[in-house]
Each structure stands twice: as structure tokens, then as C-alpha cells.
Nucleic acid binder design. Sequence first.
DNA 1: CCTTGACCTAAAGTTAGGTTTAGAAATTAG
DNA 2: CTAATTTCTAAACCTAACTTTAGGTCAAGG
Lengths: 151, 151
Amino acid sequence: MAISEGLSIGALAKRTGLAVSAIRYYEAQGLISPWRNPGGQRRYLRADIRRLSFVMIAQQFGLSLPEIRDVLAGLPGNRTPTPQDWKRISKGLRAHLDQRIDTLTRLRDNLDGCIGCGCLSLPKCALYNPDDRAKSKGSGPRYLMGDAPDD
Amino acid sequence: MAISEGLSIGALAKRTGLAVSAIRYYEAQGLISPWRNPGGQRRYLRADIRRLSFVMIAQQFGLSLPEIRDVLAGLPGNRTPTPQDWKRISKGLRAHLDQRIDTLTRLRDNLDGCIGCGCLSLPKCALYNPDDRAKSKGSGPRYLMGDAPDD
DNA sequence: CCTTGACCTAAAGTTAGGTTTAGAAATTAG
DNA sequence: CTAATTTCTAAACCTAACTTTAGGTCAAGG
């Protein structure tokens, strides 16, 4: 093996548990930027293991790849990120996660009362949440659980 | 208008906020079963407004359409579901939601410590969660945040 | 009756996040 | 050196959950 001129894509895949194809896809989405060796093959820094790990965690938190790319943009470009750097950009994730937990908790706390009851007026119902991921795939208003607009 | 021989798909769409195309799609997925009028058009019961509302809420909870179809199968087929019926099938949703909240909370509580620190050994890290939705779209192990397998 | 708007079906298109395939070139192992 | 791996690119394919389109039918109002 070459004297440590960076990791090959296969090595990075083994280290992260990701598929090689996924790593190339992330590159196409702007999440990671390897350089090329003389033969044209991708080479990665060891710090990229951590970068991809961060991507996977952020995905579990519900962020889309474009969102993750934006968060990663907060890392320094001229040097290897320090633990402090990672901590800093993680703040945004934390807020995102707090919001999701709040939403789900609110939903759960109203589940019995709202689905079980005769409640048909939704504006006052906590299950009527225009946030979370229910949006994105647009399709209109989506009033929940009942005779919303009138009647 | 005809003397209440059920709602047309357009009326149901307005009542639920869903797109007409989405309602037809849900029918194809077995989530709702209208009958047809003499002209071949779909007709729905008023109870179907609630049925579709339930579908939307369950989706916010993270259930897939097949999963929701299975939950709805717990409703009586021979009569209009009562509030008790809805309450009963909501129990499963509640458990599902509890699990998601637990997972996210665990993730959040470990975020600072794990991403911010020098932690590179993942088997002991709480961010290594093989549950949630991270699975499904298979692609392998996915070790998180570091030099997992060896080294 | 005639027109307009709602509805019908089937099939194709869309987005996200990847995987698979095909054929060629680079690397590594022996 | 040769054979086996890896990697390369581009393009096609995949699933979920829908939407859009095309071409035709039904229903309601005047």
C-alpha cells in the first residue's frame, strides 16, 4: 500500500460502514470533497471518517442532505476540524432535535384525547401541526381529524 | 345536489385538505374503500373524513401506508367506527411514538458528549442506534462516528 | 340541449437517497 | 509480468408517496 497518501474510497467505506456508492453520491451532493491521486482515484483524509459519521448522525436526526451540507459548511476549510469545531456545528442539530422531540411529545400527549374523543374542530387541536416533515411533498392544506373548513 | 348519497371525492378532498389524487392513491393502497354511484364515480361516507384524518396523523407519527392499512384493519367493517374504536387502534400508535421519542431523546442527550468529544469507539456510544428509520434503505452496517471495525 | 366543471383510468413523471450495471482504467498481490 | 481487485464514469433502476398528463365520461346549471 502507498505510504499513507490518504484513504481510498473502499477504505473509507469500511471505516464508516457506508457503501462506496453512497460516498460517491454524497460527493455529488457536496457533502465531501476528496482530491484525486495521479491515477484519478479519490483520496480522503482520516478526518473524513468523522465527517461522514456526522452525516449519518444528522440523518438520523431527520436532516436532509442539503441541510447537512449547509451545517457542514460551518466547519473550517483550511484545516482539520477540532472537537470544538464539531461541537459548534452540533449546536444547530441540537436545536433541530429539540424541536422534533417537542412536536412528537405534544402529538403523543394529545393522541388519546384527540383521536379518541369526538373532537372534530381542528384549529384548536394539538394534532394540527404544520411543521415536522408533513410538508415538503407539497399537496395543499391538510386539515386534520375532521370537518375543518366549515360545517 | 343529490340528497346525501355520500360525498364525492372532491368533497372529501376539501373536507380533509388532501388532494384528490392522493385519495385515489390511498384507495389503491387499500386504506379506504368507497363504493361507486351508477355513473361509476366514487362515493364516500362522512366517517371517511375521520379515516383519512387518522391516516394523516399516523403519517406524522412516521408510519408507512402499509403499516397504517394494517392498523385501520382493526376497525369494525360492518358499522361506523365509534370513538372507542378509534381509541383502541390508537394504542398502537402511542407505543410507536413512545419509541421514537425515546430514541430521539437518547440521541439528543448524547449529542454534545459524543460529537464534541474525541470519542471514536462507537459500540459504546449511544449515537449508534440501529433502530429508527436509518435501516429500511439497506446499505450495510453503518458504524457511527469513528474508527469502528478495527484500528 | 349544451356547456362547464368534476370525475374516470392508465401511465408516466417527480423527489430523496441511494444502488446497480456496464465497460474501461488503475492498483495490488503473487 | 499477470491476474485479481478496486476504482472510474455515466446512466439506468429502485422505493415511497404522490402528482401530472392524456383522452374520455358524468353531472349539474341555464
